[in-house]
Nucleic acid binder design. Structure first.
Lengths: 201, 201
DNA sequence: TGCAAACTTTCAACGGATGAAAAACTAAAA
DNA sequence: TTTTAGTTTTTCATCCGTTGAAAGTTTGCA
């Protein structure tokens, strides 16, 4: 596990992330240049790109591990767990675990979230990542509930569930509400989705 | 309404769109350079940006008019129309009208859709536009069903409905199904969303 | 110690995007 | 028709993110 090479790489990676976040916090995302980030982390600009595919990706460095969590949840579910329960569990876990991944400091999470929600380029990227995760999850569910859940049903379920939670959270945040209120909104939204829209209006 | 100036502007706008789409079809989106598009439309590269804010925007030139359609649908609804009916109507109209906006040729629509679904940069942009439209729609619904629909409920409804349709369509397309099958999938998805996810799995 | 593999730096280039000033054009007034 | 004022286009210069290639440096191992 050790090896100077490995450790050094992890350190540079961390340095890049921290430099980036520090600068983003100070001057804003668009105002921060890659050259500045690289300088702050003491590497050449070129090297940045052997750690991250793009400037945006510094913010989304833990997406793979989060996706693994949810596929694991699907894989390890009780054989008789109903779909709505599983989805609810996954949603709760994702929201709760939003507050800090294993490898990365909890303190940077609020900043990252704020950036994702306010910087248009990051918003678009986040939505795209969320979208591909949803497709993956839908496929996994179709597999896991084989015979009981068609591809379209799986996609509809995931899309409705995640779509409702997402928009409820963002609408809440946009109205200037607190993070707790936003999470409440997400829970209400999932309830509504389980119950069906016929119960509304 | 006339005026040489006005007409000329419309013509260059059209020329830019057509040049861009022609080149995208021939060589692909990323492979086409802005300089080539401008040359094909006989304007300078700089002028492109007084017509479109970015390369991506050539593809999304009719988004405002489409959004207006849906806000009009909300504004002009029958006072007693139930929310689910209105949402269904809006979804149908949006999907049907996907086939050609007033100002623009119908033949280019399939190409535009294909590009939006396959080019990552355009995917992200499309998702972002869809997202902001949804927020707008949710606000409009909260207004229109004032007293009967909280902001969170409106957001949940829109998010669930659109999310289900979106993911069902994309899952279908990704499985290599035809456009008709994809639209069927969308309809099934909206049905499921109206009925609620408890009925699944 | 010395060699091969992995990693970093430097350098050059491309494409998208933006600001500013010069040039070309249009729509009116004189 | 000529002048003039306003609008649009071009030209030019520049910035930033991103990528390829070649040269230089560090690490791991024989």
């Amino acid at each position: 596990m050790a090896g100077i090479r490995e450790r050094k790489k992890q350190r540079t990676r961390r340095a890049l992330i921290e430099a980036a976040l520090r600068l983003f916090a100070e001057k804003g995302y668009e105002e921060t240049t890659l050259a500045e980030i690289a300088a702050e982390a003491d590497v050449s600009t070129r090297t940045f790109f052997s750690y991250f595919a793009s400037k945006e990706d510094v913010i989304f460095h833990d997406m793979e591990s989060r996706m693994e969590r949810t596929t694991a949840a699907v894989r390890d579910r009780a054989p008789d767990e109903p779909l709505p329960d599983l989805l609810t569990r996954i949603a709760r876990d994702a929201l709760a675990h939003a507050a800090g991944d294993e490898n990365y400091a909890v303190e940077e999470t609020p900043l990252r979230i704020r950036l994702m929600m306010t910087v248009p380029a990051l918003q678009a990227r986040a939505l795209h990542l969320l979208y591909t995760s949803q497709l993956q999850l839908a496929r996994a569910l179709h597999e896991s509930y084989r015979g009981r859940l068609s591809p379209v049903e799986a996609a509809a379920a995931v899309g409705a569930f995640a779509g409702a939670a997402k928009l409820a959270v963002m609408a809440s945040v946009e109205r200037g509400e607190s993070m707790d209120q936003a999470l409440d909104a997400a829970m209400v939204a999932t309830e509504i989705t389980l119950r069906g829209l016929r119960s509304l209006g």
